[in-house]
């Protein structure tokens, strides 16, 4: 898979493209686009995959005026229009799934179906019940423990990474915090508007997700008119990383449905 650059509304971003067939757009989370991962390879085998790096993440530019996930959503509506995509399958993970919802509540006419993996972005619990663990209050080890079913396999040695990749990582973390700091990883009014997404939505969660409170994903499904929830065993917050084939199988059945 190759990374190319493109410009949308005067914003230069990186984008990974692969495969052919029906349009699939992948929206990443804080970890960025893992173009070598089995999950993205699998998506590219199922259609024409476009995986943009969000403005401010990786090496993509962040316009000074942007201040909310809503701005990113409007950027992506421009992106979809510029690409001329129709009948898109939008696949988002965590922060990227939040973004998918923000896009779809504004304008879903280019979308066919949505896959939301471990989405954040709405408020479900009461004011004293945190839906999403505070990742900014965790040490790196605590975060890895909470995010993965098999954390030992997910510890990374950053010292071996190139400066270019580390720069991308540091920028992604900064933008993730910028957009998700307060209110913490959600938009208080988003749940009120989820009814606007009439398309079929598949919500996927890991059975061992230590970041999302039990019952949180059900909150999405209750508010979306046409959604269902599937759980992946032996996976944490990122099932597409830990169990890519199981996630791809779920997506296959979902896409085959009328």
């Amino acid at each position: 898979m190759q990374t190319a650059t493109m410009t949308v509304d005067h914003v230069g971003i990186d984008v990974v493209r692969a495969g052919s067939g029906r349009p699939l757009v992948f929206l990443h989370s804080v970890g960025g686009v893992d173009r070598d991962g089995a999950f993205l390879q699998g998506l590219a085998d199922r259609g024409s995959l476009t995986a943009p790096w969000h403005p401010g993440f990786g090496h993509s530019e962040l316009p000074g005026e942007y201040r909310s996930v809503g701005d990113l959503a409007l950027f992506y509506l421009d992106f979809l229009e510029q690409e001329g995509f129709e009948e898109v399958v939008l696949v988002g993970v965590s922060f990227g799934a939040w973004l998918a919802a923000e896009i779809a509540v504004r304008d879903a006419h280019r979308l066919a179906k949505l896959v939301m993996i471990s989405p954040v972005g709405i408020k479900v619990g009461d004011r004293e019940t945190r839906d999403i663990e505070d990742v900014f209050a965790m040490s790196q080890d605590e975060l890895t423990e909470a995010a993965y079913a098999e954390p030992e396999r997910r510890k990374r040695d950053y010292s071996t990474m190139s400066d270019e990749d580390l720069t991308a990582l540091a920028r992604s973390r900064e933008s993730y915090a910028f957009f998700g700091w307060q209110p913490y990883m959600h938009n208080p009014t988003l749940r009120r508007w989820l009814h606007r997404i009439k398309q079929p939505v598949l919500v996927i969660g890991g059975t061992d997700d230590g970041l999302l409170r039990s019952g949180y994903l059900e909150g999405f499904v209750e508010s979306l008119p046409n959604a269902r929830l599937s759980r992946i065993a032996n996976a944490g917050h990122y099932p597409e990383v830990e169990q890519p084939q199981a996630v791809l199988d779920l997506i296959d059945s979902f896409l085959e449905e009328e």
Partner: peptide
């Protein structure tokens, strides 16, 4: 606590790259 020593954005990207190189993520 480690988590509170370096919130994202507090230090510039170049500084964070230096710390990551030393595996000091937080």
């Amino acid at each position: 606590g480690e988590a509170f020593m370096n919130p994202p954005g507090y230090m510039d990207v170049a500084g964070n790259v230096r710390w990551l190189k030393a595996n000091q993520t937080r």
